[in-house]
Design a protein around this nucleic acid. Structure first.
Lengths: 196, 196
DNA sequence: GCCTATATTCAACGCATGATGAATATCTCG
DNA sequence: CGAGATATTCATCATGCGTTGAATATAGGC
């Protein structure tokens, strides 16, 4: 049986972790419909659990959002890693590293992107951070005219890749392997790094 | 006076078009908070009007969304126009034309992008259309290996530009003129068009 | 084996929502 | 001027929301 009706603590043999079930369901629904359009009750229903559990575990709906947004990887560290390699081949390394580290968590990434675009701007500090690290990190590597603009546009390329691959799930962008993407998209990024 | 209390049709001298006031307010709020998070009442309040007017003019909330999404320009026509110029300088022309035709309507574009990412997939047929036209149109111009992937990635670049310029309002991307963007970002797009 | 902490459900709260229908004021056309 | 069409507000509806507090069942330490 998958349902466990009646109140009280479940028997240990039931083994189902309802807390993570809630986070998983919330991730799915938030990514699918957005934060505001997803009701706590819908998440609870999806998780096969009472809605009051959300208050119990996460305080309120926003707490559930925060739990949903917890990234399993530290984006800033990866970015710095890539930047340490220097200007040469930066484009390919950026594309390859990002897709490789994001692919296993594409639902989280999609949720992040969606709520970053939809919700209150400050509600997604993870994005603010990633943006700051990416843009200023890349900026430091660049020389020549329009360096500020070029660095920002590298971020635009990365955002475009993420949005089309994980959110819009555009054919071909969705299907290519990180290696293929690095090979095909990398030079276009490198064009901005080099400045023509 | 800006308020006009009491029921009944307003005197002609009041001149305020409440219908467009509603659409304007809705555009602003939908773009700012997203569709689901914006209440009909909030839109009406912002427009200085009773919420029932939404039902009267647009049927329901979704009708208001549709009215909000009405694009003042035909995107497909512009895309085809650009593509007619051939492969040479396609990147620059794409960037310049898109930013030039979108800039005057950036709030609509932002709203479109947001609800395209958040809402029901079929709720944004304009995007589906633009995508189809852009990707297959560009694809037809390309030769060489990975043509499918490269065409899709051009779309990714365009999406990235639009998202960072109109939604995230990323510094530098937000500030550059269409001409500067064409000059700086165009070559990166062209790199995909040419295939290295 | 009791006692407390924890997990879970249930019932209920007040509130905001989207929508409807009637009421009223003005416009337009004959 | 009179008749309908149109624009607008008001009062009201049922519904679903997020949250709370109490009730109940199990787990784990003494």
């Amino acid at each position: 049986m998958t349902t466990r009706p009646g109140r009280g603590r479940p028997k240990a043999s039931d083994g189902a972790d309802r807390r993570t079930a809630l986070v998983d369901a919330a991730r799915r629904l938030f990514a699918e419909r957005g934060f505001a359009a997803t009701s706590v009750r819908a998440v609870a229903r999806e998780a096969g659990v009472d809605a009051a559990l959300v208050s119990h575990y996460f305080g309120d709906k926003q707490g559930l959002l925060v739990a949903t947004m917890a990234l399993p990887v530290d984006p800033a560290a990866r970015i710095r890693e890539v930047l340490d390699g220097g200007r040469d081949g930066l484009g390919e390394r950026l594309v390859r590293t990002f897709t490789e580290t994001w692919d296993p968590h594409e639902d989280v990434i999609a949720a992040l992107l969606r709520t970053a675009m939809t919700g209150d701007p400050e509600q997604a500090p993870a994005l603010q951070l990633a943006r700051a690290v990416l843009v200023v990190g890349v900026r430091e590597q660049l020389q020549g005219p329009d360096a500020d603009g070029r660095a920002a546009l590298v971020a635009a390329q990365v955002v475009g890749l993420a949005v089309t691959r994980y959110v819009a799930r555009l054919p071909h962008v969705r299907d290519l392997t990180p290696g293929d993407l690095a090979r095909v998209y990398g030079p276009a990024v490198q064009a901005l790094v080099d400045g023509n």
